[in-house]
Design a protein around this nucleic acid. Sequence first.
DNA 1: GTAGAGCTGG
DNA 2: CCAGCTCTAC
Lengths: 253, 253
Amino acid sequence: MRIASWNVNSIKVRLPQLTEWLKRAEPDIVCLQETKVTTEDFPFDPLGELGYEAVAYGTGGYNGVAILSKFPINEPVEGFTGEEGHARLIEASIEGMQVFSVYVPNGASPEDEKFKYKLRFFKALRQHLASVAKPTSELVIAGDFNVAPEERDVWNPKIAAKYVGFHPLEHAALKELTSWGLKDSLRLHDQRAGQYSWWDYRTLGFQKDEGMRIDQIWLTEPLAKRCTAASIDLWPRRLEKPSDHTPVICEID
Amino acid sequence: MRIASWNVNSIKVRLPQLTEWLKRAEPDIVCLQETKVTTEDFPFDPLGELGYEAVAYGTGGYNGVAILSKFPINEPVEGFTGEEGHARLIEASIEGMQVFSVYVPNGASPEDEKFKYKLRFFKALRQHLASVAKPTSELVIAGDFNVAPEERDVWNPKIAAKYVGFHPLEHAALKELTSWGLKDSLRLHDQRAGQYSWWDYRTLGFQKDEGMRIDQIWLTEPLAKRCTAASIDLWPRRLEKPSDHTPVICEID
DNA sequence: GTAGAGCTGG
DNA sequence: CCAGCTCTAC
């Protein structure tokens, strides 16, 4: 079972790249973020033709999340109480696993009101997880967390700590969430520094290898034990008009 | 010698369609309007690879005119005193002919301030023509005149007369310009009604055959005598993302 | 309907 | 840099 997560930064613009990548990487489950379409406008048909069932949650031109799956998707739930209708979480049951696709708010700077919302979001998300699942259940939470878990996940930790993506407060918020009982799937198999999933368009970060690993797939212990591989797929960056994020992948069983 | 005029409605967006059409129609001279690029951003290189020299005049994201030619382009002149820096006229000498590419202002309704500007523009253009050429010289003025010359050039003359494109005032303004000594090249060879060069995107005019012939190639008498054919080329309308205008063509010699 | 401007957002 | 949005224009 191959599970992936990708912040596509507009599924309308990125549909050609997404379909190319799906054909090539053949993931079984894909958590998408920043689809930037309403649920109604989500491209169910072209993805269906590729063999993917989909559930999507989008309220407008910002945010928006979805889950694609080659296996049947059961009991989808859109949103949760902590996200204030921003279309930042969708969950569903697939092959007995609870699958969450999440897009954590960012905030332009630590002084920003949005940054406080980000910290509240993490707290509410932990509450939510605890209310719908147990650390001993089979659960995957994948998405754009807008925080790098460790120093080695950031091209310049000293600079990043002052801004957003590696600030101590959000770093602590992520730790508090994952301490509920979640394992960072990439780190079960790959200890290298500099494995990034996002690069700033503005600074031409990709060309300079200046990025952060802010997209992650977190697993509860039962799934972590069955996780046989994890990686970051840079292939979509070679296509025209790449997203600023690239897919992250893990294999279960 | 094949001379064409086309309002491309953004040369950035329309470059693929333009190049396809150039390869197919093989015009010698093309007057372009609504390029919507600055002179600096004009795509000289890809057009040069197709064998076209080019002169362009654009000041920003609106208007903008250009001339492409397989023959050398001499003495290009950007703008004229009546156009107030709007990048609506470019002229040049090609094979001994004076060639003008013009984009006449439109105005949303006869009450509009822009509509008055349109009438002034026509007056100023006649003044300009008279100051740089004679009716006995070899002169071509091609472009989007934003007025249909005759009733048969408009899908619904009664409606059009109330709005823009066939209002008596602008109609008279075009007549006043062309009475200087210009012949409507299409009408030297084709007397059919309903030969349109533009259709409203909003009303899906093309699909309903509701359009106007507002793009024309006007010739002085010496060239009119040598004009062997004239037509409107609907071929580019079959491509993806067509302009709301289609090219008009005439043959000299 | 389609395109650009000038804005917000990351 | 690359998306959205709202506005204007035709």
